[in-house]
């Protein structure tokens, strides 16, 4: 099963009440892929990411994580998959949020070692050692015992990335990781993501940072009204997109 995809999405549909937000998404992610997702507000980028990690439960389609379904539709019926099983399969994924969602009552290091010690049952000393290494990796060794309220936005997001990495995910999902940051703090977070890219971490990144997306990704997905309008190499998508809509969007962004 060496040619197995990391993520395989087929015919994914999701609605909130009457509002159809994802209208049939097909997507394949392979090991080492770095995929940027761009597109106008409300096009379903977050919902797609959240469906992949089961923060939203889609109604139609199939999602396979390293071959194991967390959503499976057979003959118009969803197969039942237990929550425990879904949670286990989703452990291959990590997620970084726009709003960081750090634990305010825990220090930077405690945020990072929480899941390893509680979920993965890693011995505390080992978790601390790993946590310190991760803090060093994101350049925040000196903030080890600092509570999130004393960190800048950029520092918070770097701790959040370290926290996600601490669970050793195979794939990292980023939902607009720099959108809540002051402009001067964006660079330090993008730098960390670039370093992960250099290590060939598999990542899906929803972003409005076009220069960054062009630079870091192997493929760019343009979403519009719940569909993938175009999926292409950044050179193609940014310079010569098939769809005029994309050109209009990019002109507005740049």
């Amino acid at each position: 099963m060496n040619n197995q995809h990391m993520i395989e999405v087929d015919g994914l549909r999701k609605a909130f009440g009457d509002l159809e937000v994802l209208k049939g998404i097909d997507l394949v992610v392979d090991r080492g892929d770095i995929i940027s997702v761009i597109g106008p507000s409300g096009s379903g980028k977050s919902t797609l990411l959240r469906s992949l990690i089961h923060l939203e439960k889609a109604e139609h389609g199939t999602i396979l994580i390293e071959g194991a379904p967390i959503l499976e539709e057979r003959g118009n019926k969803l197969t039942h998959i237990s929550e425990t099983e879904i949670r286990k399969r989703c452990k291959k994924l990590g997620m970084v949020f726009q709003g960081f969602n750090l634990y305010p009552h825990k220090t930077a290091l405690e945020n990072i070692i929480e899941a390893p010690t509680v979920v993965a049952k890693v011995p505390k000393a080992e978790a601390i050692k790993n946590g310190e290494e991760l803090l060093q990796k994101v350049g925040l060794s000196d903030k080890r015992d600092t509570y999130p309220c004393f960190l800048s936005g950029g520092q918070k997001q770097r701790v959040a990335i370290a926290r996600a990495l601490a669970m050793n995910p195979d794939i990292l999902l980023f939902d607009e990781p720099t959108s809540a940051l002051d402009p001067e703090l964006i660079g330090e977070v993008l730098q960390v993501i670039k370093e992960l890219a250099a290590e060939h971490m598999t990542m899906i990144i929803v972003t409005h940072e076009m220069t960054f997306a062009k630079e870091v990704s192997d493929r760019v997905i343009f979403m519009d009204e719940g569909k993938i309008l175009e999926e292409a190499h950044p050179d193609k998508l940014f310079n010569d997109p098939d769809h005029p809509r994309i050109k209009t969007f990019l002109d507005k962004m740049l």
Partner: peptide, 15 residues
């Protein structure tokens, strides 16, 4: 977001 962060880190409802 606190629930969501915990969920994606693999924590159970009780945890």
């Amino acid at each position: 977001g606190q629930y969501e962060a915990s969920k994606v880190l693999g924590m159970s409802y009780q945890q």
